[in-house]
């Protein structure tokens, strides 16, 4: 077993948490991610595999918040699947085994930084960040949007005051700064 250690997207040994009165912004360093894209002509078979994996196929603009694997729709015939890194470090390989020739799997664990934003001021804060209609979104709704010029996925989680933001990992510090700034504006 190798002994290389990881850094979080923000460059720390441990995930960072910022707590304000009405907002908590927590870096989530525990996600393994991989994209699943159906092969041409294999769409139905791919969806069947998704169903066995997640319990359902994430519809357009939706996530299936399932344990341990969860997934959301990224584009036509394309989904992102996530799972705890602790148990799914080799998620892409596991998915390749699961989907076989029905889908193209690409490891995405390193491509994203993930923040969990919770608290009663979350909707106010979202309104200062991006154009998603946060107050109309239900649990499991997913929007790709732009936060401080960065393309991000915003996932409304089960708790009504909780969103998960996936942003480009190389810009983790910029995104974090934007979140902190918005929290200070509103919290």
């Amino acid at each position: 077993m190798h002994n290389l250690t990881t850094l979080t997207a923000l460059g720390g040994a441990d995930a960072r948490v910022d707590v304000f009165d009405h907002i908590t912004i927590a870096e989530n360093d525990g996600l393994a991610l991989a994209s699943v894209a159906a092969r041409m002509g294999q769409e139905a078979a791919c969806q069947a595999h998704l169903r066995t994996l997640l319990g359902a196929v994430p519809e357009v603009g939706r996530a299936v918040l399932h344990d341990p694997e969860a997934g959301f729709w990224m584009g036509p015939d394309q989904w992102m699947v996530g799972a705890p890194r602790a148990t799914h470090e080799m998620l892409a390989d596991q998915l390749k085994d699961h989907f076989g020739e029905t889908a193209s799997i690409t490891e995405q664990s390193g491509a994203w930084v993930c923040f969990d934003v919770t608290g009663p001021a979350m909707p106010d804060m979202s309104e200062r960040l991006c154009n998603i209609p946060i107050r109309e979104m239900a649990a499991g709704d997913v929007r790709r949007s732009v936060i401080h010029q960065l393309g991000c996925f915003v996932i409304r989680r089960d708790a009504p005051d909780h969103i998960r933001i996936l942003g480009p990992r190389a810009s983790a510090q910029t995104l974090h700064h934007a979140l902190i700034t918005a929290a200070q504006s509103t919290a």
Binding site: S35, R39, M40, T106, E107, Q108, G110, A111, A170
Partner: peptide, 15 residues
């Protein structure tokens, strides 16, 4: 449109 090709950027996924 009917080629069996899937694309995704991995610029930031790999160091």
């Amino acid at each position: 449109p009917d080629m069996d090709v899937q694309l995704i950027s991995t610029t930031e996924a790999w160091a």
